[in-house]
Design a protein around this nucleic acid. Structure first.
Length: 302
DNA sequence: AGGAACGTGACT
DNA sequence: AGTCACGTTCCT
């Protein structure tokens, strides 16, 4: 996964502008060896998902945020249309950063979904997935419409085209969206989906599902919210000043999801129709108060 | 209720 | 072993 490297090279944040005394030199990029500044996303995210399982799909994620050398290596692939490639001189750093943030926000959830779908599909093929098994969710009832919505337009657009996510209009994307768990850390496969696909040996996925259920594990940064994407400690907030005693991340970098109470976050997930294992055919909720950001039925809702 | 300090898990 | 950071507890 190279998103973090892309971010670090892609543009200077507003923070960097503010704390210019430190950020003028590239020293800031190597200031923390554990990745606080240069790799804010990779550590939590790479553990949360089986990145090695991802193929070309994941590479599309970082296309827009790589430096020139990285972009060159992917020059054969069509770049996602919404990603601007302005000259740095033409845009201010802050503006560029905002643009990147918008692009990221719009794409991350869908990309995670696409990646999970790719993983499931690939693994399912490897396991000679039963014909009537996973496919049955597609055409059945409202789930089908939601699925077609997703794969037909949003996902394809976000990922960059059928080459990257070949489950487009005619691709026959065979999975019920209810089989996916939308979490702050990304989109994962529901437990039952794993069993249906015979994927019990995919440890990260099942482990995550159990972690969601138990709620015992330490939560991790979502990696997508603005605070998570922020790479610079303010060095001025109480958390920064009291780092030795406080053991707390900079207030401006505190993940939005982690700010919520664990119970509240769980309730949001449940009410948004993404309960860990109760899958596909749950009856529609009478008054769904969907999470503004995560909803497995309405992936475009943010 | 919000913030600070501490305990401790996760990671290098 | 050292560092980071989430969760809990305590204090205001």
């Amino acid at each position: 996964w190279t998103m973090s490297s892309g971010l670090s090279a892609g543009g200077r944040t507003e923070d960097q502008e503010r704390n210019s005394c430190k950020q003028d030199s590239p020293v800031i990029e190597r200031r923390n060896r554990s990745g606080i500044l240069s790799e804010p996303l990779s550590k939590s995210l790479k553990k949360s998902r089986t990145l090695s399982q991802y193929t070309a799909v994941s590479s599309a994620t970082s296309n827009g945020h790589k430096d020139n050398s990285e972009t060159k290596s992917h020059s054969a692939k069509p770049q996602p249309p919404p990603l601007p490639q302005p000259t740095v001189s033409a845009l201010t750093a802050a503006k560029l950063d905002r643009t990147l943030e918008q692009v990221l926000e719009g794409q991350n959830g869908l990309l995670h979904f696409a990646q999970a779908a790719a993983l499931l599909k690939r693994a399912g093929m490897e396991h000679m997935l039963l014909p009537g098994g996973m496919g049955m969710g597609v055409g059945s009832g409202d789930a089908g419409s939601g699925a077609s919505d997703l794969e037909g337009t949003s996902v394809t657009d976000a990922v960059g085209g059928p080459a990257d996510f070949p489950y487009g209009v005619g691709g026959g994307f065979p999975f019920n969206p209810g089989l996916f768990i939308m979490t702050p850390a990304g989109v994962f496969l529901a437990d039952s989906a794993l069993h249906m696909a015979g994927l019990a040996e995919y440890p990260a996925q099942s482990e995550l599902a159990s972690a969601i259920n138990s709620g015992k594990k330490k939560r991790k940064r979502c990696g997508m919210c603005p605070p998570c994407r922020r790479r610079i400690n303010c060095d001025q907030c109480s958390s920064c000043r009291n780092r030795k005693t406080g053991h707390q991340i900079c207030k401006f970098r505190k993940c939005e999801e982690l700010k919520k109470k664990p119970s509240a976050a769980l309730e949001v997930k449940l009410s948004s129709g993404a309960p860990g294992v109760s899958v596909a055919h749950t009856p529609p909720r009478p008054s769904p108060p969907p999470s503004p950001r995560f909803c497995c039925r309405c992936p475009s809702l943010r």
